[in-house]
Structure formats: C-alpha cells, structure tokens
Design a protein around this nucleic acid. Sequence first.
DNA 1: GGTGATATGTTATCTTATTACATCGCACCG
DNA 2: CGGTGCGATGTAATAAGATAACATATCACC
Lengths: 144, 144
Amino acid sequence: MAHDHSGHDHVWADDLTRNQELVLGTLAHAEAPMSAYDILDKLRDEGLRAPLQVYRALDKLTERGLAHRLESLNAFVCCADAQCHKAGTIAFAICETCGRVEEFAEPTVEQKLSGWSRAAGFVPARMTIELRGTCRGCVSSLPA
Amino acid sequence: MAHDHSGHDHVWADDLTRNQELVLGTLAHAEAPMSAYDILDKLRDEGLRAPLQVYRALDKLTERGLAHRLESLNAFVCCADAQCHKAGTIAFAICETCGRVEEFAEPTVEQKLSGWSRAAGFVPARMTIELRGTCRGCVSSLPA
DNA sequence: GGTGATATGTTATCTTATTACATCGCACCG
DNA sequence: CGGTGCGATGTAATAAGATAACATATCACC
Ligand SMILES: [Zn+2]
Ligand SMILES: [Zn+2]
Ligand SMILES: [Zn+2]
Ligand SMILES: [Zn+2]
C-alpha cells in the first residue's frame, strides 16, 4: 500500500519502527526459531509487555520478507538471505535435534508445484515447504 | 455401517477404536479441514468431552496416514487417497475462499527436495508442502 | 490547527495443545 | 482363577499461541 517495493530496497532496512527493529534484532541473534512469546520474553527489558506488540512487528517483517514464519513450528526466523525473494519460493530444513534451520531455494520445486496448480486450475498465493529431520552436524554426532 | 462412509472408497482399517472411528468419520464427512476443537464440538453428542480424546485419536490416525495435519491451518483432513503412502510425500492445495483442500503427489518435488537434502547432509524425516490460494471453482466465480 | 494514516499500548479473550493422574479392558501367563 | 502389563479412556487443569476491542500517540500533509 504505502510502500512501493519495486526494487530490493530492504537489506537491513533503516525504516523499521522501534518494535520491528527490536524483534528483528532478537531473531537475528537467535540460533533457532523463536515463538512470538519467546521473543516477547527477550524484550521485556526493552519495554515490551504484550504479545500483540510482537505479533504486529512480525506481521510487518514477514510481509517484507525480513523474517519468515515456520508453519510447522509456530515460530519465526530471521531471513537468512537478503535476496530470497528473487529466488522464488523458499524452503526450510529444520533440524529436530539442534533446532537450527536452513533456508534454501529450489526453483524446480516451485516450477513443478506451479505446473500442478496450472493443470488443476488452482491459483497459488503462497507455498509452504518445510523439511523436518536431522542436520549434518547432528547426524554425525549421533550414535551409529 | 462401520465400513461405509459417504462414498469414500477408503480402505477403512477395521481395528480402529471407537474414538478413532468417530473422529475419522467426522473428518470424512467434512467439506473443509477441521480443527481438533471443531471435531470435538461435532462429537459432544457421542459422548466426547475433552480435547485430549480428539487429539489422541488424531495422533493415531495421522500416524497411520488415514488423516493428515495441515500445518498452515492447525487443522486436519481425512486422507483423500488410500494410496497416498505409496505415492511418496504428499502436497496440499488449500483454497482460502471455500476452504476445500486437494491432496496430490508430485514425485519430482520429493526427488528435488531429497536431492538438496543429500547434498546438504540433511536427513529428512518428513516434508510439509502446502499451497494456499484459490481453487478452480472459486477463481471462476470471482469478480473479474 | 485539522485530518487521515500508521504505529502503539493495554486488557481481556479466544483458540490450540499438552501435562498429570486415575481408570478401564483385555490379552497373557502362572 | 488371580495377577500383571499394556494400551485406550476419562477428566481436570494448565500451557502455548493468537486475536479482538479500545484508547492513545505520532507524523505527514493541507
Ligand atoms: Zn528469506
Ligand atoms: Zn542439528
Ligand atoms: Zn493421504
Ligand atoms: Zn475454493
């Protein structure tokens, strides 16, 4: 609406509000996804008191692609790649052992899903792709 | 009676418990995904009183592939395809207008995601693929 | 100064999911 | 038969996630 993002003007965008900056900063320092309430707890000292303050910031951040929501965790991560919009739909690999998340793009996957949609007459607005499993580091440190 | 649910040619496991059968039957008759609490409300008359009774049944049903959880909705659907296990990972197209869900398989998608995983050293346990958008029927009846 | 749009703060409430504990039913075995 | 183990059930209480409703503040613009 008010914003016109024809380009890629937001890297560490400098037009964030205070709450948005606090929330994004918290996510940026996190090793693993955080729920809205996790974030709220971290920001009590900064004056945040209510869930809505966090949810509102998260809404704006995810709209702009600066953060992502992981549907299968009800949690949020900082976007790991300022360019992720150009790469098309994003996928996430979530380690169930250490909690770390890797963000990646697989253009072929998006193509295939778009292809199915076209054939089915379905008009996709957004795609959620999340893998749950065990990351390289955790696999190698697991019992044989 | 126990094996006849609204024309679904599902292979109804005959070893379901009473609660599991009630929950699966409710999902089988639904036009759209239902939350656990939606299901509970439908089953009050049958004697179900607590969320846990529904969640426990849903756990078993999803384990066996008779129902699926839609992560992006926190809701559940009856499996639409008795063969979906053989088809590999399943994807869902969710209409945000009418609520209906289509379940489909795209083997290439799974291959690509598995390929990425192999390269990244990630061992996937399960994959979530959900498209949100507008179905054929709703697109054609939308204002131009 | 007045007006509208956006951001904030605060409380209460709603929805979704789990923990904890008691009980029941039934297969299995001595 | 009685005991034992295990899975399913019933119930209450609570945790975790998300939103509704309403009041206030801030700033650009005229
Ligand atoms: Zn990203
Ligand atoms: Zn890991
Ligand atoms: Zn299925
Ligand atoms: Zn529709």
